[in-house]
Amino acid sequence: MSVATNTGGTSGGRKEKIYSQPQLPWKKSIQFALGSIKVRFWRSMITAGGVALGIAFLASVLTSQAIAGQVDAAEEARTRWLIGLSLLVCAVGITNAMLMSVSERFREIGTMKCLGALDAFVVRIFMIESVLTGVLASTIGWLVGMGAIVLVKLIAGVPKEAPAGTVWYGSLDGGDILRSFLFCIPVGALLSAIATYIPARQAASIPPAAALRIDV
């Protein structure tokens, strides 16, 4: 059976038409990204480790606050400052990890572009991957951060007096947990997405010949 023969195109001077390459549907992109995460699970988890750590810190602060209950304005400001800084450090770390993980895949990107992938498709795959790993990593980080604080308080028997001398009179209820979850997970996913966008955008726009030439 003949494989590469086309049934059409018997006329002599026919011109082969070039169209615009269509973008793949989201369903395909997500399938693609999931497959990629599955195969590289531990590698992506290392990349996402930064997110997990940042979110663990965030969750632990939120949990402590909930347990401590009322805090004064100065304390509140200090905490905000601390959270902001730690997330910033975390963002720099993940950007670096993402740069590495994208450049490890230059050859794959070049190959996919040779096979007809659009730049936008390459970027989309990376974004889906990063948001998914971001969500997973921040869920882990959130559980760890909150769990650690709760555990510490339990072991310490929830002292009547906090280190700073204020009195503990809050408690960790379902509302606190939900609020903390709804805050931490999107923050983690967003951090991961921001960190991925620029490296992915850049890698996708490299001409395939150059992408294939680069050896990492």
């Binding site: 086309n6 195109g9 026919r14």
Partner: peptide
């Protein structure tokens, strides 16, 4: 080659 589908546009060899 003027068909709407992609495939009719990918004329090959013969």
């Amino acid at each position: 080659t003027t068909g709407s589908g992609n495939k009719s546009g990918i004329a090959v060899s013969g």
